[in-house]
Design a protein around this nucleic acid. Structure first.
Lengths: 346, 346
DNA sequence: TTCTATGCGGCAATTTTTTGCCGCACAGCG
DNA sequence: CGCTGTGCGGCAAAAAATTGCCGCATAGAA
C-alpha cells in the first residue's frame, strides 16, 4: 500500500518495455484468466479489477513505476463493456505546455502555425472507449483545469474548433505519486483528485510479491530466448534465489530488462549467479545481514503497544513501579520482566 | 447531497454520479420537505435557505469542496419564485482567459475566428432564472471587472454584439476560498465581494455534522446498490462507526465515492470495516489513541494493537488468511485462535 | 469430475509467559 | 539499631499461547 516514488527518469520509451507482456495479455485476455497472477495479493487485485470493469466509474491505479499499471488498465478495458471500443493511452508525464492541450484536444487546420491538417486529440480518439492517463500526477496545475472542465462538462473542442464534441470515454488513470500529498501541498487539484479517485487500485511492488519472480523470470526467458534464437537457456537454482531476494526498485520492467540482457550476453546453457550484475549479489548479501525490519509482524505491533501502555501507566502511577503494575493489571514481577525484555529505562 | 426518501422508482441509473441525486432532488424539491437535514446546523441552514429563497438578493455559499454547495444553490432556486425559470450553473474555476468572457457573454457570428454562429452566454441563458457561479473565488481579477459591471448595470452585450441585453437573473455564488482574505490580499475585488456577499451561507464540512454520515451512507448505498444491481447490501455497525469517526477531507463527495467503490467491490451481503481503505482505520485508530486515556490494562492495550495489526495484515494479504498469518509471522493456527478469541469478523 | 488450495476447529505436545516466593539491597525514619 | 516500603532478579510451578497434525468442508482451477 505504501509506495515509494522516484524513478521518473532513466526510463526511455515508457510504452515499450512491457510490450511483450501486453502482447501476452492481448492474446490471453479474451480467454480471460491466463494472465500471471501468482501471488494472493495479485489475485485479489485481479478480482477487484474484474468487478470494477463492469462499471463506468473512474479508476485510479497507484503503484511504483514498472509494476504494470498499464497492464491493469488494459485488463479493465478488456473486461469492460467497452471491450470492442478504442483504448487510448496517454502518457501525461511527457506532455507539457502547448503539447498538452494539443495531445488531448487535437486541433483544426490552421489552429496555429504548422497545424495544417485536422488532428484528433485523445479525448476524441477515445470515443466511447477507455482513456488511459498514465502519470496523471504529472499534469501541471494549469492543465489540470482544462482537464477537469472536460470531465465535468463531458464535452470539449479541438484547438481552433468551434463546435463542442462530446466526451464519452471512461477514465482510467495511473500514477506513481501520492496524489493525496500533492493535494495537500496544492500541486494537484482536490476536485480533480476526487473525480479520478472513485475507485483506487493499488498495485504492490514486485518485492512484495516475490512468489511471482520465478515464473516471471522464466516467462521472459522464454520470450527472449525465442526472439534471439537462443533456446535451451536455463536459470540455475542459485540464480533464482538471488533474483528472489533482490529488491527490484524498477519492478517488473527491471526484471524484464535484466533477462533480456542475460539472454543476449549468454553463450547458451545455464545462467549462473555470477552472470548477474554485481550490485544484486551485494544487495542480497547485505539484506541477509540486516534481517528485515519485520515491520508488520504481530510481535512488533504488540511490543510497541506494550511499551506505550507501560510508559503511560508509569506516568499515571507517579513513578512507582508497583503502582504501575497494578494499573496495568499485571504482577510486579511481570512488569519487571517486560521492562528488562524491552530494555525500558523508566 | 442530502436527500431523503427512497422511492427510487424513477431512477434511470445511467446518469453521472451526481446526476441521480440531482434528479432525485428535482423530483423531491418542489414538495419541499424531502431534503435530508439531520443535524441541527443543517436544519438551521435549510431554514435560512428557504427564507432567503423568497428574496432576490444575491447569495454567497461558502464551504469546503465536496460539501454540496451546488445542492444548496439548486435548493434555493427551487424554492424561489423563479422555480420554473432556467437554472444556469457555471464553474468559474475551470474558465480562464477568453473562454471566460465567451462563456458568460456569448458571442455573435464572426466575433472572432471560429465564431460563425450565434452563441448565448450564461448571462443570457439564465434569463430571469438563477445564475449559479461555482468557485467564484477563482475568477481572475481582470474578469472580475467585467463581471461587476454586468451586475451593476444589469445589462451586457454578446462578444461582437452591438445591442445591450438585459441581465435579470438572480445570482447565487459559491466558493471554497476565504474571499475575505483574498480581498485583503488584493486578489479579489472588494466591491464585487460585497455585491455577492449579501446573504452568506456557510456549509459546514461533513466532519462537523457527523450525525449525517450514517443516513448519507445508507442513501448512497441504496442508490449504487440499485445502479449496480447489488441489492441487499448492508453496512455493518462497526463499519458505520469507522465512517463516523473519519475526518472526510473530501466531504460528501468522498463519502459518495467510497460507497460506490464498496458496492462495486462487494460480493454482496454485509460491508465490514475490513473492506474500508486502510487510511481510515489508521486515522480512526490514531484519534482513538489520542483521546482514549481510559484505564487501559495492558491486556486491553495488547488486544487493541493485535486487532489493528491483524486487520491491517488481512487487507495487505488481499483477504487470504494464510497470507495474513505469514505477514504477521505467526502460524495460521494461531491466527485462527486470535480471530476467534477476539471475535473478529473478517 | 477430480485436484488443489484455503479455511475451520479439535487435540495434544511444546514453548512462552505469568506468577508467587524467595533472598538481597537500599533509603527513609523513629 | 530495627522497621518498612520499594525495587531487583533467580527459580520453579502454573497458566497460557503457540504450533503441528488431523479430519472435514468448500471454492476454484485443471
Amino acid at each position: 500500500m505504501e509506495l515509494r516514488t522516484h524513478d521518473t527518469a532513466g526510463e526511455s520509451g515508457k510504452n515499450l518495455p512491457l510490450d511483450d507482456l501486453d502482447a501476452h495479455l492481448e492474446e490471453q485476455l479474451p480467454g480471460g484468466t491466463a494472465f500471471l497472477f501468482r501471488s494472493v495479493g495479485m489475485r485479489a487485485l485481479r478480482r477487484v479489477a474484474a468487478q470494477v470493469a463492469a462499471s463506468d466509474a473512474p479508476v485510479l491505479i497507484v503503484g511504483e513505476s514498472g509494476t504494470g499499471k498499464e497492464l491493469f488498465a488494459r485488463f479493465i478495458h478488456a473486461l469492460s463493456g467497452r471491450r470492442g471500443k478504442p483504448y487510448a493511452p496517454v502518457n501525461c508525464g511527457v506532455l507539457k505546455g502547448e503539447l498538452f492541450a494539443d495531445k488531448f484536444f487535437g486541433h483544426e487546420p490552421g489552429a496555429f502555425t504548422g497545424a495544417n491538417r485536422l488532428q484528433k486529440g485523445s479525448f476524441e480518439l477515445a470515443e466511447d472507449g477507455t482513456l488511459f492517463l498514465d502519470e496523471v500526477g504529472e499534469i501541471p496545475p494549469q492543465n489540470q483545469v482544462d482537464f477537469l472542465r472536460v470531465l465535468e462538462e463531458r464535452k470539449f473542442r479541438r484547438l481552433g474548433g468551434e463546435k463542442d464534441l462530446p466526451f464519452r470515454a471512461r477514465i482510467v488513470a495511473a500514477t506513481n505519486r501520492r496524489l493525496q500529498d500533492m493535494v495537500r501541498e496544492g500541486s494537484f487539484r482536490a476536485d480533480l483528485f476526487y473525480r479520478l479517485n472513485v475507485i483506487p487500485i493499488s498495485v504492490p511492488p514486485l518485492r512484495e510479491r516475490r512468489e511471482e519472480i520465478p515464473p516471471l523470470a522464466e516467462h521472459f526467458l522464454e520470450i527472449f530466448g525465442h526472439r534471439y534464437h537462443k533456446k535451451d537457456l536455463t536459470l540455475a537454482p542459485d540464480t533464482l534465489k538471488v533474483l528472489g531476494s533482490y529488491s527490484w526498485p524498477g519492478n517488473v520492467r527491471e526484471l524484464k530488462n535484466l533477462i533480456e540482457r542475460l539472454v543476449l550476453m549468454s553463450e547458451g546453457g545455464v545462467i549462473r549467479p555470477t552472470d548477474l550484475p554485481l550490485e544484486m549479489d551485494m544487495e542480497v548479501a547485505a539484506s541477509a545481514l540486516l534481517d528485515g525490519p519485520a515491520s508488520l509482524s504481530l510481535d512488533a505491533a504488540v511490543k510497541e503497544a506494550e511499551i506505550r501502555a507501560i510508559r503511560r501507566a508509569f506516568r499515571a502511577a507517579g513513578g512507582s513501579r508497583n503502582e504501575t503494575a497494578r494499573i496495568l493489571q499485571i504482577s510486579p514481577r511481570t512488569l519487571r520482566h517486560k521492562v528488562s525484555a524491552y530494555g525500558l529505562k523508566l
